[in-house]
Design a protein around this nucleic acid. Structure first.
Ligand SMILES: [Mg+2]
Length: 631
DNA sequence: CGCTCAAAAGTTTTT
DNA sequence: CTTTTGAGCG
């Protein structure tokens, strides 16, 4: 997602690629454009390697080049390479880039590029019978899991969620049932697992947990995967969890295997999900022969943004680790607002002003502040980031009021919302009637009457996915045909590319994530959480809600958040910006049913005054209260 | 069983 | 300030 503008290095002419095998397989043009540090990382010989790379240093690009180099110049067969990405979107993107680098279809066939989950899912499909499931098992999503647990144990929603979390933790840290110390949890775990098996289900965590389980119990299966890949490359390694790390170790048990990891410990933001940055920081200890590469030249951010954001992660201590920016940069705007509404209004007005406003001379514009109106010419150049989704409401309203089109990323995808969710549930059930949980759920939700259930299998027989979905809509959703017409159309549109492969469609639905919906080609502003912004970049970024309570998040004392991780979150957010960065906060905010008067975030205090331009936004007057102005 | 209305609860980030 | 849940009624 680097929008294809990769660096021209000042050193690139000085470097020679004196590689032996390159004659035989042909040189790779992309390597010429890398800078010195990137090139060294790409040309790493063999054995383990860690690439520590700051924001905008071309991590993903370096990884792509490494794969292309292995295939093209080292003659490594693509089926011997496994590349792991963080999202399905990133996998898709990487494959696309590799296709561009290595034209010719045959070169990439057999190459595995996927998320850990999609990789594990493939293993589950192949060996489902070892785990007491059919080939057509379904995936239970996190929401369904809570309902299943609630009904299975007769719990309240909240307690069911807690139990679900315990089970999740067990799976994400890969504890075998015998290793569960708490007797009560153990029995819940066992009953839950029995229920899944009975309904021919796996949960999402099983995509890692069950393959690992299989590897540990069934040597014949392990032998199929052990050393199957000569090169395993992992992007965003700072955010992997224990189960994922153990998966890698199962695939490549040797300490000196060619495991190539790339990431940035300062951008670790998924600790709440079991990710542990220590897998990255301890990599050299665990692999004594590993080479370490550092990428310090950022091709995205300005020096100024790097200097300011660096304060979040207090890396100023190590002078040598300072990143080098693309250019000097312009000051960061820090906007104080009276309320959350005026904050949203400020953002909308600013975007409007930059993109469509009159190009008159502004009194306070000088060279050192840049010229936003010239640098930015598309709505897709803007990102509005927030800590929690609830902040989005006010911003959405303001953008709508100003008729600014936007895409919400990380939102529950439309296919997870009614009535599409139910359409897909019927499709899912018609593919696999063993799913008793789904059967009960469909009847309970009155999506379908019990007597009609037996006719479902016919729906999907020898039909394209689109045809099946159309049949389901015609038969069970005819009443909603008008009000939900758009969603139905969107669904039918989406199914088309899957042809008759309805199972593949289900995989897409089950493993797809919110972040996958981001489309950089749309002419609109991007509204998303800081988490979803990982790996992306924009010329102009707004980070809203820079307040105590929101960032760092601490609205509920019982759920303490990791302050260091919150700092890194702001670091990630700030470093999404190529040139213009707005940090905004409100003195009054209405959130989660409460009025608050938060103090501005302590994180802002760390940024030197000279890097900042302060703005006090005008208070936003609601339309109906404007009369007051004249009284 | 299905509707209405009032009281109560809700607590982040996601592959 | 929502959204969800439960009691009470037709
Ligand atoms: Mg990346």
């Amino acid at each position: 997602m680097l929008k294809g503008k990769m660096p021209r290095s000042p050193f690139h002419k000085m470097l020679e690629i004196a590689e032996d095998k390159s004659e035989k397989y042909g040189k790779l043009a992309a390597l010429e454009k890398l800078n010195r540090e990137q090139k060294q990382a790409v040309l790493h010989d063999k054995g383990p390697a860690a690439v520590i790379a700051g924001p905008g240093t071309g991590k993903t690009h370096t990884l792509c080049c490494r794969i292309a180099y292995l295939i093209q110049e080292q003659g490594v067969p693509p089926e011997k390479i496994l590349a792991v990405t963080f999202t399905n979107k990133a996998a898709q993107e990487m494959r696309k880039r590799l296709e561009e680098m290595l034209p010719g279809k045959t070169k990439l066939s057999g190459l595995s590029v996927s998320t850990f989950h999609a990789f594990g899912y493939r293993i589950l499909k192949k060996h489902s019978e070892h785990l007491g499931r059919s080939k057509h098992f379904s995936i239970l999503d996190d929401e369904e899991r809570i309902i299943l647990i609630r009904d299975l144990f007769g719990l309240k929603q909240k307690n069911a969620a807690t139990t679900a979390k315990s089970i999740k933790d067990i799976k994400q840290s890969f504890k075998l049932p015998g290793e569960i110390n708490d007797v009560h949890i153990f029995s819940l775990f066992e009953s839950y697992e029995d229920k899944l098996k009975e309904s021919d289900l796996f949960d999402l965590d099983d995509c890692l947990y069950r393959p690992l389980f299989l590897f540990s119990q069934t040597p014949s299966v392990l032998s199929l995967y052990k050393n199957r890949y000569c090169h395993v490359l992992v992007d965003e390694f700072q955010d992997i969890n224990s189960a994922q790390y153990q998966m890698i170790k199962k695939l490549m048990p040797e300490q000196d295997a060619s495991l190539y990891i790339i990431g940035d410990p300062d951008q670790a933001i998924y600790g709440f999900r079991g990710s542990d940055v220590r897998f990255m920081t301890d990599f050299l200890k665990d692999h004594p022969t590993a080479s370490l590469y550092k990428l310090k030249q950022s091709f995205r951010c300005s020096d100024l943004i790097l200097r300011a954001s660096g304060k979040m992660i207090n890396n100023a201590a190590h002078e040598e680790d300072m990143l080098i920016g693309l250019h000097r940069g312009v000051k960061i705007n820090l906007a104080e607002n009276t309320t959350d509404k005026s904050e949203a209004e400020f953002v909308a007005r600013k975007i409007e002003d930059i993109i469509g406003g009159l190009r008159f001379f502004s009194m306070d514009s000088d060279i050192s502040e840049g010229n936003e109106k010239e640098d930015i010419n598309s709505l897709s150049d803007f990102a509005v980031l927030c800590r929690i989704k609830e902040q989005m409401k006010a911003i959405e309203k303001a953008l709508n009021d100003h008729s600014i089109p936007f895409q919400k990323v990380g939102e529950t995808p439309f296919f997870r919302e009614e009535p599409i969710r139910s359409v897909i549930d019927i499709l899912r059930f018609s593919l696999n009637q063993e799913n008793l949980f789904l059967k009960q759920s469909l009847i309970k939700r009155k999506v379908i009457k019990a007597k009609n259930i037996s006719s479902l299998p016919d729906i999907t027989k020898n039909k394209s996915t689109t045809k099946s979905v159309q049949t389901i809509i015609d038969r069970f959703f005819f009443r909603q045909k008008e009000e939900a017409e758009d969603s139905f159309k969107r669904l039918l549109n989406m199914t088309e590319k899957f042809g008759e492969n309805t199972e593949e469609f289900m995989k897409y639905i089950s493993l797809g994530s919110g972040a996958d919906t981001y489309d950089p080609s749309l002419e609109c502003v991007t509204l998303m959480t800081l988490h979803a912004a990982k790996g992306l970049e924009f010329p102009c970024v707004f980070i809203t809600g820079c307040e105590e309570g929101i960032l760092p998040y601490s609205l509920f004392p019982s759920h303490k958040s990791d302050i260091k991780e919150e700092r890194r979150l702001l670091y990630v957010g700030m470093t999404r910006a190529e040139k213009y960065l707005y940090l905004t906060y409100a003195k009054k905010r209405y959130i989660q049913g409460k009025h608050m008067e938060p103090r501005r975030s302590r994180f802002l205090d760390a940024i030197e005054e000279e890097l900042i331009k302060k703005i006090h936004s005008k208070p936003f007057q609601e339309k109906n209260s404007q009369m007051k102005l004249f009284s």
